[in-house]
């Protein structure tokens, strides 16, 4: 697993209080991991802080699963 993926998982485990085993790439924040809309906003903000990467709102709206978050961050970090 990439360093980015591990950091994303850690943030999700910390903020949503879920087990790491539940944080699979397919897992949806709202449907599978119990997040409400505010939790999702907080997650995006935590990603922004952790990776020092502003995520525009229209992009943030598309990040609904663990896999999509990792994919977005891997694509944009260091560019």
């Amino acid at each position: 697993m990439s360093d980015i993926a591990q950091k994303v998982k850690n943030i999700i485990v910390e903020k949503l209080g879920v087990e790491e085993s539940e944080v699979t790439p397919e897992a949806s924040f709202t449907n599978d991991l119990g997040a409400d809309s505010l939790d999702t906003v907080e997650l995006i903000m935590e990603f922004e802080k952790e990776f020092n990467l502003p995520i525009p709102d229209d992009e943030a709206e598309k990040i609904s699963t663990v896999g999509l978050a990792i994919e977005y961050l891997e694509k944009h970090i260091g560019k």
């Binding site: 505010l38 906003v41 907080e42 903000m45 922004e48 802080k49």
Partner: peptide, 9 residues
Amino acid sequence: PRINPFFIV
């Protein structure tokens, strides 16, 4: 501003 969404509540 990177205000936490739970700040107000």
